[in-house]
Simulated assay, not measured.
Amino acid sequence: MNSENNTKKREKKDTELPLFSYESVLAATNNFSAVNKLGEGGFGPVYKGKLLRGQEIAVKMLSKRSGQGIEEFRNETILIAKLQHKNLVRLLGCCIERDEKILIYEYMPNKSLDFHLFDPIKKKMLGWETRIHIIEGIAQGLLYLHQYSRLRIIHRDLKPSNILLDSEMKPKISDFGMARIVGGNETQANTKRIVGTYGYMSPEYAIKGLYSIKSDVFSFGVLLLEIVIGRKNTDFSNSDSLNLLSYVWELWRNGQSLELTDSTTGNPSSTSILSRFINIGLLCVQESSIDRPTMVDVVSFISNEYAPIPIPKPPAFRIDRNTTVVNVENCSRNNITVSIMEAR
């Protein structure tokens, strides 16, 4: 009994978050009604709720079937409690009662980016200007994590489903269960357990377990190109291209950038803007992490249209006519896995 009490005290101290009672969470979600269920991932189900004072919330439950879910829970609460930025989802509190581990977030009425981006009807809400603002917001949030937060954070699972959209379609990075803290002067670490989502992992991480701020930059580059083109990176199984990166690279280097525009976005104000964003995306997904820009550079490229941009080298995971740069069969295909936070 004392051990259980000590565990709860330690968790309460670690989270530094308001603690919600289980009864209040039940009331907010109407006893976790199926009508209020927003979705479910490897962590567990997510429900929409409403507090007594009228505030709408998203309630994320730890699934009892999640093998390392308690560590992921602790990871997320410890990290997000210390992070404050307009482009990061806000954690309002947690509940640690009746063997339940529950996170309470601000509710995002427009759901996740992938809900819109890859749907032939809903993607029409994402005009060119909206997509640019979403890219800018994600870049600012990632810059904060890498450069300006009290802790240097590597997210490790940046993808459209982890980008939530508020009522004004402004993006917020979510899901820090796989994130890692590195020391103030550190930019790289390694792990024996590869986690993340196939299609967004950098080659050095997927194959060697090396992760760094440049791993997040790679994921951001994939995400940027998906937003601009309107297609998933892995949605090329029936084409000559291995993935979106290979497809974009071939057209871009042949001066055919206009063919890459998502027809539902409307035309950008100038073709140079489209080409510039594709150039930035390709810089981020270069095979070598050394060649990729930092998020400081990326934000500068995005915000200053007159800043010169380097010519990118070929991207990772591409297939040319005579060469396969990276054999993707050697890469992890984990869609949802969990890591344990280790402060370094």
Rank of each mutant, 00 (worst) to 15 (best):
N185W: 08
F277Y: 15
G137F: 01
G93T: 06
L143F: 13
E97M: 07
K60D: 04
F32M: 06
E16S: 13
S270Q: 05
R231M: 09
P120M: 07
V285S: 10
G184H: 11
Y306Q: 14
R180I: 04
S161E: 12
W128S: 03
D240P: 01
Q140S: 14
K214I: 01
R150I: 09
T15K: 06
I104G: 05
G93L: 06
D216M: 11
I227R: 02
Q147T: 10
L117R: 07
S66D: 12
A139T: 12
A307D: 03
F236N: 11
M125R: 14
M169C: 03
L245W: 01
H155T: 06
L145C: 08
E11L: 15
N75K: 07
N335P: 04
F277H: 07
Q68P: 01
R231G: 01
G42S: 12
Q147A: 05
N267S: 14
L158C: 05
L62F: 08
E329Q: 12
R156M: 11
W249G: 04
G44M: 01
M201N: 03
A27D: 13
V285C: 10
L164K: 03
Q55R: 13
L19W: 07
R276E: 00
P120D: 10
T337Q: 11
S219I: 04
F43Q: 03
I121T: 10
E23T: 12
P314D: 01
R193I: 11
P18D: 05
G230F: 11
Q140N: 10
F301D: 04
P310H: 08
S257H: 11
R231L: 04
I138E: 06
I336W: 07
C284K: 10
E56S: 12
S237V: 09
